[in-house]
Amino acid sequence: MGKIKDRLTSMGEFVPQPDDDMIICRCEEISKGEIRQAIHDGMFTLTEIRRFLRAGMGLCQGQTCTRLVKGMIARELGISPLEVESTAARAPMRPIKMIVLGNEGKES
């Protein structure tokens, strides 16, 4: 089991599952079925799934769903979750108002 580089690697037909309606990313309301379909559409990495579906791009920045999506990618591709790269963390750590960030910590 290794990282998959060839994006034509077959993972079989997309088979609907009974819990595909389950919401995985709560901030952006992305379901399990949408994520599984994206993987079958060629989105093999967490970063690609974020960019394709917005899963993990909401207010919590993926703190809740990232681990779940990682597991789903590994399962669909038949690889170990350890082979699924994490996403880059982006500043700021917490959402911050423009008026505050623009002030750079100076007294207002």
């Binding site: 207010l59 700021p92 108002k97 423009m98 008026i99 960030l101 623009g102 002030n103």
Partner: peptide, 26 residues
């Protein structure tokens, strides 16, 4: 220092966006 600088630029033209929260930069 860059995102702060961009915010100042934006707010000069769109003061109404001052309360909007930045969630991500790259």
């Amino acid at each position: 220092i860059t995102a702060s600088c961009i915010c100042r630029g934006i707010m000069n033209y769109f003061p109404c966006l001052g309360e909007a929260k930045i969630v991500r930069t790259w």
